Amino acid sequence: MKQFIKTYLPKTSAIALFASAAYFFLYPRDAHAMHIMEGMLPPKWCIFWFAVSAPFFIYGLYRMHKIVRSTEQNAKVMLALCGAFVFVLSSLKMPSVTGSSSHPTGVGLGTVMFGPGVMAVLGVIVLLFQALLLAHGGLTTLGANCFSMTIVGPFVGFAVYKICRAFKVSRSISLFLCAMLADWSTYVTTSFQLAVVFPDPNTGVGGAVIKFLSIYAVTQIPLAIAEGFLTVIVYNLVISNNLWKETALQ
């Protein structure tokens, strides 16, 4: 089983990545998802979120350099798996209310395996691909989308995971909470990002946050729970077959 996974896991990840990309490229749909669309943010806010995200991206490059140069067995394969996991899950747009849609983020797996820093780099790659080929997100809003999904989400998830493990919570439950809350915190952050740009005329930013959160609340809770379970299954499969050590390169 171990040899089978080591041999075919990279190929399977690549096939899943290509199949997902082909589907969304050949059958495009209007994008009204969690990723902030092109043109939704004023230039000053686009610049602001790029500036805020830049230090995390630079740190992520440093972390990725260490991972690629490390002697840890299967490090590059697992890094590719985490990137494919983010791409596939974050491309699955589920219909929500008011004509919008929601989707998982997939950042929990890479966060636990490599730490939150590297997810900013993987996230930029994924978000660029989705914006250019899937009409999902945008180039000017790349900084904002990166900050919510691949910076806030992973750091929140990693903090939750470490706290749970410090209190002797089981690995599976800790990972489940990490993935679920990383997903949920992404949507909370996006709601704030939109609320400061489009405040409610009567209730201001606070009222706008509630409205934006309510758009996704119906579908995002079960999606976050499902993502948590899926992340646990994939991670435990990797660990149980000795393809990765629990604390390696965090």
Score class of each variant (00 low, 15 high):
residue 1 M to V: 06
residue 2 K to A: 03
residue 8 Y to H: 07
residue 15 I to W: 13
residue 17 L to W: 01
residue 18 F to V: 15
residue 18 F to Y: 11
residue 19 A to R: 03
residue 19 A to W: 01
residue 23 Y to Q: 14
residue 25 F to A: 05
residue 30 D to W: 11
residue 34 M to Y: 10
residue 34 M to V: 08
residue 35 H to A: 10
residue 36 I to S: 05
residue 39 G to H: 08
residue 44 K to R: 15
residue 47 I to N: 03
residue 58 I to Q: 13
residue 59 Y to M: 02
residue 61 L to N: 02
residue 62 Y to K: 09
residue 62 Y to G: 14
residue 65 H to M: 04
residue 66 K to G: 04
residue 73 Q to D: 15
residue 75 A to M: 03
residue 75 A to Y: 01
residue 77 V to D: 00
residue 80 A to T: 12
residue 80 A to W: 09
residue 82 C to V: 04
residue 83 G to I: 03
residue 85 F to T: 09
residue 85 F to N: 10
residue 87 F to T: 06
residue 89 L to P: 03
residue 90 S to Q: 05
residue 92 L to F: 06
residue 93 K to R: 11
residue 95 P to N: 14
residue 97 V to A: 04
residue 98 T to I: 13
residue 100 S to M: 09
residue 100 S to Q: 10
residue 102 S to C: 08
residue 103 H to L: 02
residue 108 G to P: 04
residue 108 G to C: 08
residue 110 G to M: 04
residue 112 V to I: 07
residue 113 M to N: 00
residue 122 L to M: 14
residue 124 V to D: 02
residue 124 V to M: 13
residue 125 I to N: 11
residue 126 V to R: 03
residue 126 V to I: 11
residue 128 L to D: 06
residue 136 H to A: 11
residue 137 G to Q: 12
residue 137 G to K: 07
residue 141 T to W: 04
residue 142 L to R: 10
residue 150 T to P: 07
residue 152 V to H: 01
residue 154 P to M: 09
residue 156 V to G: 07
residue 156 V to A: 11
residue 156 V to I: 15
residue 156 V to M: 11
residue 157 G to E: 10
residue 158 F to E: 07
residue 159 A to R: 08
residue 165 R to C: 08
residue 167 F to G: 14
residue 169 V to T: 15
residue 170 S to M: 03
residue 171 R to W: 06
residue 172 S to C: 06
residue 175 L to W: 02
residue 175 L to G: 05
residue 178 C to R: 00
residue 178 C to G: 09
residue 178 C to L: 15
residue 179 A to C: 04
residue 181 L to P: 06
residue 182 A to E: 08
residue 183 D to E: 07
residue 185 S to R: 05
residue 186 T to L: 00
residue 187 Y to H: 10
residue 189 T to N: 11
residue 191 S to F: 04
residue 192 F to W: 15
residue 194 L to I: 05
residue 195 A to T: 11
residue 198 F to E: 10
residue 198 F to M: 12
residue 201 P to N: 14
residue 201 P to Q: 08
residue 202 N to W: 13
residue 203 T to K: 13
residue 203 T to Q: 13
residue 203 T to N: 13
residue 209 V to S: 09
residue 210 I to E: 05
residue 210 I to L: 12
residue 211 K to V: 09
residue 211 K to M: 10
residue 212 F to N: 08
residue 215 I to W: 05
residue 216 Y to S: 08
residue 217 A to Q: 06
residue 220 Q to D: 12
residue 220 Q to F: 03
residue 221 I to W: 01
residue 222 P to W: 07
residue 222 P to T: 05
residue 223 L to H: 11
residue 224 A to H: 02
residue 225 I to G: 05
residue 226 A to H: 06
residue 228 G to F: 00
residue 231 T to K: 00
residue 234 V to Q: 02
residue 235 Y to P: 00
residue 237 L to T: 12
residue 238 V to F: 05
residue 240 S to P: 02
residue 241 N to W: 11
residue 243 L to M: 14
residue 245 K to G: 02
residue 247 T to D: 15
residue 250 Q to S: 10
